[in-house]
C-alpha cells in the first residue's frame, strides 16, 4: 500500500494532520502530524500535500541501520536510533520529523488515517502496482 496525494483535491483544511496526530500520538495537536500541507498563497494559490511515499532514503542514509522495511513500511527502531537526525536532513519530501519531547525522529507508519479522514479524497491509499501504473 502507498499514500498518493491528489493535490488539486486539497482545500487546505488540514484535518488529515489532526487525524494523524490523534491516531499516532493520541493528542489533539497537529504539530505532531507526520505529513505536511503546503499552502502557496497569495500566488500561485494552491495546496501541495507532502506525504511519505516510503522511498527509503531515510533508511539508506541511516548510519545505525535503525530504519528497517517491514511489510512495505519503513519503521524507526527506537532502540537502535541514536538521534543523529541525518534522516531528517535527507528526506526528499521533508516528512521525517524531529519531535519536541523525544530524541527519536518520527515518520509515517502508513496507518492510512489521513486518507480515510480526508473528506475530499485528496490523499488516497493505493496498492503499489496501481501507483506505478498511474
Amino acid at each position: 500500500m502507498e499514500l498518493r496525494p491528489i493535490h488539486e483535491n486539497c482545500s487546505g483544511c488540514s484535518i488529515c494532520r489532526l487525524a494523524c496526530a490523534i491516531e499516532n500520538f493520541q493528542e489533539v495537536n497537529p504539530s505532531k502530524s507526520l505529513l505536511r500541507i503546503e499552502a502557496r498563497f497569495p500566488a500561485p494559490g494552491d495546496y501541495c500535500i507532502h506525504v511519505c511515499d516510503q522511498c527509503g532514503e531515510c533508511a539508506d542514509n541511516c548510519p545505525e541501520d535503525a530504519i528497517q522495511l517491514q511489510d512495505g513500511v519503513f519503521i524507526v527502531d527506537q532502540d537502535a536510533c541514536t538521534g543523529c537526525m541525518i534522516c531528517v536532513d535527507v528526506c526528499p519530501r521533508d516528512v521525517m520529523f524531529e519531535q519536541k519531547h523525544s530524541d527519536i525522529p518520527a515518520k509515517c507508519v502508513l496507518c492510512g488515517e489521513c486518507a480515510r479522514t480526508c473528506p475530499r479524497n485528496a490523499i488516497v491509499l493505493v496498492e503499489e502496482q496501481e501507483s506505478e501504473v498511474a
Binding site: C10, S11, C13, L18, F41, G45, D46, R120
Partner: peptide
Amino acid sequence: KITDKGCFGCPTPCGKYGH
C-alpha cells in the same frame, strides 16, 4: 477559480480562490 480553499477541518469549503 484556481482551488477550493477551506477553513480548518472543513469538508465543504465555500472559499473559492482564483485570479
